[in-house]
């Protein structure tokens, strides 16, 4: 049984300019212990579909799907209270802006223990021990000391480590990472990706990695879904995607990588004769 199954997911937003379809019939599934990368450019609906799974979309959004199941349990018609028991415990998420994702008013230790209090029945001392354990696991030096630190006293990379610690607090079955390294420097990105891959291999959790960076995909994913304007363009395992991209859009994306440049002009997506509807008006 797949960990997460989504069939024909559609998300629409009501905006002043009419209905906007952000996700258009996406189907995907994640197996246990698998790293699935969702690649796409801005506006491809890659984050929105995952937020829909988490139930984190604003009220203007309409979510429709033939099936959306986590470990065989239907997620579509779940009571909010039931959903909250799963979200944050069995499915957790980390975001792009590590510093903004942490509450600046509370210490790091408090924020980790808060999650533990919500989802486990550990007592105070046990929660503290677990928090230290988690910080150690994500590679933060002096975890005992660091429990009392505030987010602004840490660097972006360290904040992302804390976010990962919070996400891992309840041993999730599925971790959704939404552009986890986009705001970070390359050397830090490498450390964070290594950490994520290491934790994933150790815990055997499933992981969905949302990114726009082909390099990150190549370094992490088992399987890849390429999305464009809310639709799935291609799905393949990572090696065949890079070796033999099938869809013109995937080919265009790979060709547009500067390191793959042949000659002194970069091919652009338009060169691959994709229907590219012109940009009209402001985005919602």
């Amino acid at each position: 049984m797949a960990l997460l199954e989504i069939e024909n997911l559609t998300v629409e937003f009501e905006t002043a300019a009419g209905t906007l379809r952000a996700v258009d019939g996406i189907s995907l599934c994640v197996e246990e212990g698998e790293v699935l990368a969702i690649v796409g450019e801005s506006g491809s609906g890659k984050s929105v579909s995952m937020l829909a799974v988490m139930g984190l979309l604003p009220w203007t959004a309409t979510v429709k799907a033939d099936r959306m199941a986590f470990q065989g349990r239907d997620m579509l018609n779940l009571e909010p209270a039931e959903r909250r028991k799963i979200i944050g415990k069995d499915i957790s998420m980390i975001f792009q802006e590590p510093i903004a994702s942490l509450n600046p008013c509370f210490t790091v230790g408090f924020q980790i223990q808060e999650t533990l209090r919500q989802h486990t029945d550990l007592d105070r001392a046990a929660r503290r021990r677990r928090a230290i354990e988690l910080l150690e696991a994500v590679g933060i030096p002096d975890p005992q000391e660091r429990l009392g630190s505030f987010p602004h006293q840490m660097s972006g990379g360290q904040c992302q480590r804390v976010m990962i610690a919070i996400a891992l607090a309840c041993d999730p079955k599925l971790l959704i990472a939404d552009e986890p390294t986009t705001a970070l420097d390359v050397t830090i990105q490498k450390q964070i990706l290594d950490l994520l891959m290491d934790l994933q291999a150790r815990t055997g959790m499933g992981m969905i990695l949302i990114t726009h960076d082909m390099g990150v995909v190549a370094e992490t994913a088992d399987r890849v879904v390429v999305q464009y304007k809310g639709r799935k363009m291609e799905e393949a395992d990572v090696l065949s995607l890079f070796e033999r991209p099938q869809h013109p859009y995937t080919k265009a994306l790979l060709a547009a990588l500067p390191e793959n440049a042949v000659g002194d002009r970069l091919p652009t997506v338009a060169d691959f004769s994709l229907d590219d509807t012109p940009y009209t008006g402001a985005r919602p």
Partner: peptide, 8 residues
Amino acid sequence: MATTNTKE
């Protein structure tokens, strides 16, 4: 996201 082609 669509940007126009210089040539045309």
